Simulated scan of single mutants.
Amino acid sequence: MATVMSSVLLKLVFPPPASAVVSAVTVGSFLVLAYSGVSEMIGKHLNYSKFWNAATEKQKNKNIKVSSRVGMVLLYGPAFLAGAASFWLYPNEGLRSTLLNSAVTLHYFKRLFEVLFVHKYSGYMYLDSAIPITLSYFISAATMTYSQHLTVTEGLPQPQIDLMYPGVAVFLIGIVGNFYHHYLLSKLRGEGEKEYKIPKGGLFGLVICPHYLFEITVFYGISMISQTVYSLCFAIGTTFYLVGRSYATRKWYLSKFEDFPKNVKAVIPFIF
């Protein structure tokens, strides 16, 4: 069974580049994201969004607190710059590289746009939570584009099964779905309101975190465009983290709202 899966995988991705740095970042990113997902499930949250105030009193006294808007710009700004810089650092390297660099840059540009013009905020973010997320996004954006660059400069053989064009479609579905559900969340509160409400519309009738579901979709779309080992591992690691975050979010809603519908799952409709 393992041999069959390995054989299929080799048809779907480029061979790993001869880079110890990329290999180390691939393993490290996956382990950190997977661990973060498990931590969310057992109640050890990164302190932003609904869980910004989850730190202990001792931690609160030690940590620097910033507004959620500033914190979110810090999260996505460096990753957007890394994506934008890839066009200058790795020019004219073929359609796959151009699509990959465009997808990475567009994803983080959209996130910055939402932070500045769509989202509404009611809390804060602690820097000790913001910094590791910022580094994760920045390193992922830089490593995705660099890994793609190495497939060209090292002349690695193309995957036998080309997923680039289906990947573009999956990416676009993810980014549109993610934006739409962020927009619905922003419309829950009227002017000056800060309290949380049970989201409605879109896929909120099925899962409490459809925006996370579509963000996972975005990264699998990017992985399909890229077809590098790193992008696949990052997509899988992101799945672990966002599934864990979704589980914690559903648990939070159940604790805050007696009328929260029990049939609404965390992130995967009808399943989880």
Rank of each mutant, 00 (worst) to 15 (best):
T153G: 00
G167C: 11
F204H: 06
T153H: 07
L172V: 11
L206Q: 11
E215T: 01
M144K: 00
Y165K: 14
C209T: 08
L184Y: 05
T145L: 09
Y180H: 15
E154D: 14
K194L: 05
F171T: 02
M164L: 12
P210Y: 05
G192M: 10
A141K: 01
V176C: 09
V207F: 06
L150T: 04
G202H: 04
L150V: 04
L213T: 09
R189P: 02
F214N: 01
G205N: 14
Y165E: 10
T145R: 02
G167P: 11
H181Q: 07
H181G: 06
M144V: 03
S186C: 04
L163W: 12
A169T: 09
F204R: 02
F214D: 00
G192R: 07
V168N: 03
L185V: 01
I161E: 15
A142C: 03
E191V: 12
E215R: 01
V168R: 02
A169S: 12
A141T: 00
L188R: 13
T143Q: 03
F179P: 11
L163D: 09
K197V: 07
Q148S: 14
H149I: 00
L213D: 05
P166S: 14
L213S: 05
Y165G: 11
I175S: 13
F171V: 05
Q148C: 05
L213F: 14
I208C: 10
T143I: 11
L185D: 06
V152Y: 10
Y146P: 00
E191G: 05
L213E: 07
L206H: 14
H149K: 01
A169L: 13
Y146Q: 03
E193K: 07
L203K: 00
T145W: 01
H149G: 01
G155R: 08
G202K: 09
Q148W: 01
R189E: 12
A142G: 03
L203S: 07
Y146W: 13
G174N: 08
Y212K: 06
R189M: 08
G205P: 05
R189H: 10
G174A: 12
G174E: 12
A169W: 04
H149F: 02
F179N: 15
Q148D: 04
A141H: 00
V152Q: 14
Q158F: 12
G167M: 10
F171P: 06
G201K: 06
Q160M: 14
Q158H: 14
P159D: 10
T143S: 12
Y146C: 01
R189T: 01
V152K: 06
A142Y: 01
E215Q: 03
